[in-house]
Design a protein around this nucleic acid. Structure first.
Lengths: 341, 341
DNA sequence: CTGTTAGCGCATTCAG
DNA sequence: CTGAATGCGCTAACAG
């Protein structure tokens, strides 16, 4: 590796001047600057990232912690983060927590050891977990730049963003109710997953609003995987008094329900209407196309990266942003069968 | 931030000893060691990653360059890479090249500036591009640890792995021929994409093997996106003498073809058989389920990470591995409609 | 077994 | 405008 000293030597000057010249900082005569640039190029000089970082205390790297990159809602979010980050000169480190609080904490610890400039925590159950809240507080106090995505409970000392899960669920449920369904099954996520809880609350509130009794027997708890949607959906459909509509807390499970309905020979939406949440790519490819709640994934990612990097670039701002994005219900054939052209 | 010096001071010793104690290196008395550990814990000491890296010349980070994380074949590969990397103590930096050679080169340059210990290049057209080949050679000579995935043309001075694209395509095509199709449309990828070229060769070889004339008119060039599969598939199907089978160079385009067929009211596979390549998750969810060529994505990622990290941990080994994995044809309803239970 | 010393490569003082 | 000196925090080599 060629160092700044070698460049300085060949250019008959010193490291300080080379540094200033190459970084366009401070004064340096046009002529010496040109000379230095020529020599640097000839020697194929490239600054040593680590050394520079050690000095400047900036790595130009942000870390992203998400439950699982293989979960179809994340790639697009990640792409949004990456594009914005690259645009602003940052690289992106990505790790999976599998939504395990211990793992999230472990990763937060690793990344806060001065290897990255900031961290985006796309939390699983996340902020709902006490240990994680404490960890976040601690990091924030230690000056670690952090943005939390997903569900945010308290006024944590971080910037955060999430979509309005309650509202989204409320609205799809209302859509189903308006179609005349009064027995709607809900397939939730893991009991401790805050996102699922919120969606469940939205579902419940909509029922209430329509004067329909909330009934525990119509709520099943899955794990956000297709298999669980399939199993629980099948169970719902095989009951003596099966619900006429099923709303799953995410699209992946909703697709499982569609497969179950198909297997049982139930027509969708005539015999059973099905709705999901997320609007993953495949929601509009599967047949029937899936009614769901759409969140602008790419934009969420992009916005998250922007918030984080902005936070990185300012000192001691103790007012935190809390952005809650409005979701949008997308009505498709799985609840309403009518061609619109 | 608390440094090693503060720990040393409180423990009434010096930085060297603290370093040895905390890293379990060299000799250090049990007692002093315990003391140091206690103090370190009390002060909440955590080593400064950059400083350590500058000294040891290791970052414990690997970089991954892929065309696009939002392309459904990548998340699983990435997950394989991440899991293996984490297991071995590495973090993973991920960037998208959008299969643009200039972008690949740019990213290779950035990452080789001592910010990562090694690079996995999951190339788009990649090794087929002269500039990239040169770049790879240069980096290899400079001692940068590199593993290239995807299609590999020459005996480049790097480890590499890819699946046998030719073989996979050959076999699905043979499958179609054996079903009696003798007019098989092929939807390729971009003309400069080596992967697509190889798959096309496999298609062609299978035809030849069955004494069927290869016909340019039966080959269309897409861009690996669903939309192009849809458009080109529709075009094939609306011809006066439409092919009775269509083989697309990847699943995403094949799904586009399925949608086109559906829209035109053609029954699959009775009126048109459809096959893809990759076996993405959705290939088995879409109806009809898609016949395709399966590659063990998670394992590919895991293996790639393993190769790279092994390479990182050895000095000056100038013999390079070239692994070519065997793909497997998965027959589903889109070509062969029969229930098997 | 432990303390001292040096230096990784750079950016930033501070004199001049 | 430029050179010299300093130190970011750590580990490794060496002397004791």
């Amino acid at each position: 590796m060629t160092t700044i000293y070698e460049v300085a030597k060949k250019a008959r000057t010193t490291s300080g001047t080379v540094s200033r010249a190459l970084n366009n900082k401070g004064y340096v005569a046009e002529e010496t600057k040109r000379k230095i640039e020529r020599v640097a190029k000839r020697l194929n000089y490239t600054p040593h990232f680590l050394a520079r970082s050690l000095r400047t205390k900036k790595t130009d790297i942000i870390a992203v912690i998400i439950p699982n990159i293989a979960n179809p809602i994340y790639p697009e979010i990640i792409r949004g983060i990456q594009d914005k980050a690259h645009e602003l000169g940052y690289q992106v480190l990505i790790s999976n927590s599998d939504a395990l609080p211990e793992r999230e904490i472990e990763l937060l610890t690793i990344f806060s050891q001065k290897r990255v400039d900031g961290i985006f925590l796309g939390t699983g159950e996340g902020a709902e977990n006490k240990k994680i809240r404490e960890k976040i507080k601690k990091l924030s106090e230690a000056g670690i730049k952090l943005v939390v995505g997903g569900f945010i409970k308290d006024k944590l000392p971080t910037d955060s963003l999430s979509i309005d899960n309650f509202q989204g669920a409320y609205e799809v449920t209302k859509h189903l109710l308006n179609l005349g369904h009064n027995k709607i099954g809900f397939i939730s996520g893991p009991k401790n997953a805050r996102v699922a809880q919120e969606r469940q609350k939205g579902y419940r509130a909509a029922l209430l609003n329509h004067n329909i009794l909330y009934h525990d027997g119509l709520v099943a708890y899955g794990n956000f995987q297709q298999e669980s949607g399939y199993t629980l959906g099948k169970d719902f459909l095989q009951r003596e008094k099966a619900p006429s509509a099923i709303f799953a807390a995410n699209d992946v499970m909703a697709i499982g329900v569609i497969l179950a309905a198909e297997e049982l020979g139930r027509r969708i939406p005539e015999e059973v209407a099905i709705a999901g949440f997320d609007d993953i790519t495949w929601a509009s490819i599967i047949r029937p196309r899936l009614t769901t709640v759409s969140q602008p994934k790419y934009e969420v990612g992009s916005l998250a990266a922007e918030m984080l990097i902005q936070r990185i670039n300012e000192e001691n701002n103790r007012t935190f942003q809390r952005i809650i994005l409005k979701p949008k219900v997308v009505i498709r054939e799985s609840t309403l069968n009518q061609e619109k052209k």
